[in-house]
Simulated scan of single mutants.
Amino acid sequence: MAESQKNEPDAPLWVTLDNNIQAMSYKSIRVNFKNISKRASIKKPVNPHSFRHLAVTNWILDGLNEQEIKHRCWLVPRISTDVTYLC
């Protein structure tokens, strides 16, 4: 990733490793997770969504309130999403 993109809030989190350095699609990330988990002999489902659930669960255990969790999950405050669903 270019040095100028490191501090940009809209820069992608997951990027390709080729010379074009583009944002990876959700499908590409999911396939990579699946392949890595298979090589590591992990039996449980491993995908980006399961990492989201794990993060939210840890934030709840750390004592964050619902508004802080929604902010970290990039949820718009007007959306009535129950934090319980995210866990």
Rank of each mutant, 00 (worst) to 15 (best):
Q22S: 11
R39M: 07
L17H: 07
K34Q: 04
S41V: 14
L75M: 12
R52P: 08
S37K: 12
N65F: 01
K34I: 00
H71D: 09
I42Y: 12
R39G: 02
F51D: 02
E68T: 03
F51S: 03
I42W: 07
A55V: 04
L17I: 04
N35V: 05
R39T: 08
K43F: 04
S37L: 06
N32R: 14
Q67D: 15
E68W: 13
K70R: 15
R72T: 05
R39Q: 10
W74L: 05
K70V: 00
C73N: 01
V15A: 03
L75I: 15
Q22L: 11
E66W: 01
H49Y: 14
L17G: 13
I29C: 05
H49C: 02
H53K: 09
L75H: 11
N19H: 13
R39F: 07
R30Q: 14
H71M: 09
C73E: 02
E66I: 15
P48V: 00
T57C: 05
A55Q: 10
N20L: 14
I21D: 09
S25L: 11
N32M: 10
N32H: 15
K43T: 12
K34A: 03
V56D: 01
F33W: 05
S41R: 13
D62G: 14
Y26H: 02
L64R: 11
V56P: 06
I60H: 14
C73M: 10
K70I: 00
P45T: 01
K27W: 08
T57D: 12
Q22R: 07
V31I: 15
I60P: 06
R30L: 14
Q67A: 12
L61F: 04
I36T: 10
R52N: 03
A23L: 07
M24P: 14
A55P: 00
I29R: 06
K38D: 13
H71Q: 12
S25T: 10
P45S: 08
S37P: 06
S37E: 01
V56R: 01
A40S: 13
K34V: 00
S41D: 12
D62K: 15
V46M: 05
N35Y: 06
H49D: 03
F33V: 02
K44T: 12
M24Q: 14
V56H: 00
S37M: 05
L61I: 02
D62Q: 10
R52V: 00
P45K: 08
L17Q: 09
S50Q: 06
N20H: 07
V76G: 01
K70Q: 10
T57I: 04
N32Y: 11
W74D: 04
W59R: 08
V46D: 03
R52W: 03
P45M: 06
Q22M: 07
S50L: 08
I29L: 07
F33E: 00
W74Y: 08
